[in-house]
């Protein structure tokens, strides 16, 4: 039977929880007066991508997103309150899927950019779904959907770019162990 305790090691759980906390702190502390949809993606995807790059197991991004979502929901930081859980869990799941699909090569710039885009766009999609679910007219949601998608892609990509640099540095300094051309998940050194 599946158990988080046996699937993730204690170190991994601790690391993911800390990264979820970092996600929450970043979201709370870095309040930029930019009225551009998805601009927070530039820093929100970073802890998730780094976590997925370090843990290298399906579910790690989801866990980080869930922790962040619960914290944000609990503290009521954004206007979506409890729906934050869905938004940020979706972000984590998307980065998770990207990591799995790209063999956790997050030090690669294109891979990390795609993971950042996937996470930020997933957050946007859940945001749209929540808006529709609570009764916002479809026209209101759809009127800016194209522009919003572009801005989410741009900021997610920028966050992914920064993440790629950070992951590469972590590998270079030995914080993350990598075997050349490795696609497995059994050499985590977190």
């Amino acid at each position: 039977m599946f158990s988080v305790r046996t699937y993730f090691t204690l170190n991994e759980i601790a690391l993911m929880s800390l990264l979820g906390g970092l996600f929450f702190v970043l979201k709370t502390a870095l309040r930029m007066p930019l009225s551009i949809p998805g601009h927070t993606g530039i820093f929100l995807v970073i802890p998730v991508i780094i976590g997925v790059a370090i843990i290298r197991k399906p579910g790690s991004g989801t866990y980080i997103g869930l922790v962040a979502g619960v914290l944000l929901s609990f503290f009521g930081v954004s206007g979506m309150h409890v729906f934050d859980v869905f938004q940020y869990t979706a972000l984590g799941m998307s980065v998770d899927f990207s990591g799995y699909f790209f063999h956790y090569r997050m030090e690669s710039v294109p891979v990390s950019i795609l993971a950042g885009i996937a996470g930020n766009v997933a957050k946007m999609l859940v945001n749209f779904a929540v808006d529709l679910a609570i009764g916002v007219p479809f026209v209101v949601v759809a009127i800016g959907a194209g522009i919003s998608a572009v801005s989410h892609v741009i900021f997610g990509a920028l966050g992914g770019l920064v993440s790629a640099y950070l992951v590469a540095r972590l590998i270079k300094t030995g914080v993350i162990a990598r075997n050349a051309g490795d696609a497995g998940a059994d050499d985590t050194d977190a």
Partner: peptide, 27 residues
């Protein structure tokens, strides 16, 4: 990996395109 990356970027373009079609239709 390179093909997967190319497919990923193609998917991003497709998703953004779909949202633009929705936005233009609503406008």
């Amino acid at each position: 990996l390179s093909k997967r990356v190319a497919a990923g970027f193609a998917l991003v373009v497709l998703v953004v395109g779909i949202f633009f079609v929705v936005q233009i239709t609503v406008e």
